[in-house]
Design a protein around this nucleic acid. Structure first.
Length: 391
DNA sequence: AATTTCACG
DNA sequence: ACGTACGTGAAATTA
């Protein structure tokens, strides 16, 4: 994959760069006008002084670890509805980030001899077994916001004979938690092929699945991710912007309806305290020196790692096993399709157009069978002229 | 070199 | 009283 590289539409990025420049200049002017001074918006320190000392947008602004005003996105979002300057700062930050990290840097990283982008993967350093990608990092290419999607669309197929194919595991970490814990509720949800967030919503809100609203499903989705990370009521309250009581109820209801998950978390933490490590399904270990620490917050943090690492780590093991199987399957089948990128639960390919019908089932099967699990593994595929269309 | 912020899964 | 969800890499500013 490192040798293969991926093609970038530099012409499109160049146009986008000019457009971002215009947006950035206009936003900078508006921000300076609203502030009444020409400060450096890129400096969190100066920005904090402008927003909280000069304009006094918040009576009790949150501070960072070193005592500065915090100007991070979650803080600014609370002020955005009532203050245009804050909305402009958020837009400005988004545009500057995209321009500096992606739009202007990626074309520089193209290797002149191949005309393609070659990332470097490291298997050595992450604590959970995931791969790292750097120089350039191709595992953080934008997709969530509208502006960023233009960058993803610049990752294009090799030539007119190829398309970008994306194959990603659906809800892989939740499926792994179902497998590791053997929780009956989760296992039947996945076996029935139901929408897992809707299913969780019907449990934590104690309503019929048909009566789950959009809002209930969205909140249940946050609960599901929170469980994987070792949620606290405080954390859920912050993320959902709900009262503490409601957050407590959601978590209590979740564990009441998923006793297998609760038991698995408890026994995993207990195992970590006894042995000093936890392990993925294939046996990769993560040692947790602070799991028996007298420092409560260190211990709590270690407990979250104890339950999260087997889940994230098993997903990493699964994808690496899948990559080996895909590699052999492509070679055995004599395919021209080439594996290019891996992004934690996704594989990206240059797919030869003549192989659309044949190669997709081969890749899907190789990924699904990488690690036998007690719940179905689903792989979603899509293809198009670029990485955005493939999703 | 440390801090702050933000892009992704 | 404290701190508050897991794993990363990179850029700009500050110390």
């Amino acid at each position: 994959m490192e040798f293969a590289g991926i093609s970038l539409d530099t012409k499109a990025l160049k146009k986008f760069s000019a457009k971002l420049d215009d947006e950035i200049n206009e936003l900078r002017n508006q921000i300076h006008a609203a502030a009444g001074s020409e400060f450096n918006i890129d400096s969190p320190k100066q920005l904090g002084v402008v927003l909280f000392d000069d304009l006094k947008l918040d009576d009790k602004p949150k501070k960072t670890a070193t005592g500065q005003y915090s100007t991070r996105e979650t803080e600014l979002l609370r002020l955005a509805p009532s203050h245009a300057i804050v909305r402009d700062v958020l837009e400005y930050r988004n545009a500057v980030k995209l321009k500096s990290v992606y739009v202007d840097q990626l074309p520089e990283a193209i290797r002149p001899d191949t005309g393609r982008l070659h990332t470097h993967y490291s298997q050595l350093w992450t604590t959970t077994g995931r791969l790292q990608s750097n120089n350039p990092n191709l595992q953080t290419i934008p997709i969530r916001k509208a502006r960023g999607r233009e960058i993803r669309a610049a990752f294009v197929a090799r030539d007119d004979d190829h398309l970008i194919l994306s194959a990603d595991y659906s809800q892989i970490e939740l499926r792994i938690m179902a497998d590791l814990s053997g929780d009956e509720t989760m296992m039947s949800a996945f076996r029935d092929g139901t929408d897992i967030h809707r299913s969780t919503a019907s449990k934590v809100y104690k309503v019929d699945p048909d009566d789950v609203t959009r809002e209930m499903r969205d909140k249940a989705k946050t609960v599901n991710f929170g469980i994987i990370y070792g949620i606290s009521a405080f954390g859920l309250q912050q993320r959902l912007n709900i009262p503490r009581e409601e957050a407590h109820d959601l978590i209590n209801n979740y564990f009441e309806k998923h006793p297998g998950v609760q038991a698995w978390i408890d026994s995993t933490i207990e195992f970590a305290k006894e042995h000093g490590y936890v392990a993925t399904r294939t046996g990769r270990r993560r040692f947790l020196r602070d799991i028996t620490s007298g420092n409560k917050s260190l211990q709590r943090a270690s407990e979250r790692l104890a339950m999260n690492s087997p889940i994230q780590g098993t997903a990493a093991d699964l994808l690496k096993l899948a990559m080996i199987r895909v590699h052999h399957a492509l070679r055995a089948g004599g395919f021209k399709t080439e594996m290019l990128l891996t992004v934690h639960d996704e594989l990206v390919f240059d797919m030869h157009k003549s192989e659309i019908e044949t190669v997709i089932p081969v890749i899907t099967e190789a990924m699904q069978g990488a690690l036998p699990m007690s719940v179905p593994i689903e792989v979603e595929t899509g293809y198009g002229a670029n990485w955005l269309e493939a999703h």
